[in-house]
Amino acid sequence: MSITLKNVSYRYSTGTAEEIEALKNITLTIEDGQFIGLAGHTGSGKSTLIQHLNGLLRPTEGQVLHNGQDIFEKGFDLRTYRTKVGLVFQYPEYQLFETTVLEDACFGPLNQGKTKEEAREMAKRALRSVSVPEELFERSPFELSGGQQRRVAIAGVLAMEPEVLVLDEPTAGLDPCGRTEILDLVKSLQEERKITVVLVSHSMEDIADYVQRLVVMKEGEVFLDDEPKKVFSHFEELEEIGLSAPQVTYLMQDLSAQGFGVPTDCITVEEAKEAILKAVGKC
């Protein structure tokens, strides 16, 4: 299912002295099955943008189209649409509220109108898919560790079996191992269930390792939109807007400037390793 933003602008506090234009005339299509990274400095409009994807915010101007149909049109089933576009907010574990892990993950499916049995099945499937062990299902979510809580919260969204999964900084506050776990999980969901993933992240290294397409926002506009390699080749412009390229990109630039015949567009450790070994004749 594709989502298209067509000339979308969004203003907070319209008609007051504090009016802020958070999105400026954005046109963007999120294709089926893509793994997309969304980056930008704090205040660049990332969060405002993702809230348009499932209709939490209504554009001040422009349209949000689902398979070509305006989601705010009369007669469009926005309620069902919202369950297809799962939004995982920052620190989603703060939104856990039920008495047990399983009941918490049932909340979404129950809201979709599923029966209790169906909801439990969907919740269990989702919890298993994020590797929450069965013995925790009846525990209070508040007794779990931070990393486990995060996974339970993500399962709560997955239980609705969305076709598009939008995650806002899903790895914030997790240790490196927890970060890899969550990102590997998201990657496998995208590959196995063919769902579309939009990942908001500050970590350029994480983005380099996972996404196929990278959208960079600047002051409410789309600044760059391309494959990560190409986006990171603009590292100087990225720095101007408070972002950066992965560490190895800088190394390759540096080596190339010093006369090494290495490609400058390496973004992962693996790529850089091969290129360097080749350049020094060890391969």
């Binding site: 890899t180 450790v269 390793k273």
Partner: peptide, 15 residues
């Protein structure tokens, strides 16, 4: 110990 290593340190180690 489940600690990540910065890309550069990891690359140096791999090389």
């Amino acid at each position: 110990y489940k600690l990540g290593v910065p890309q550069i340190t990891l690359l140096a180690h791999e090389l």
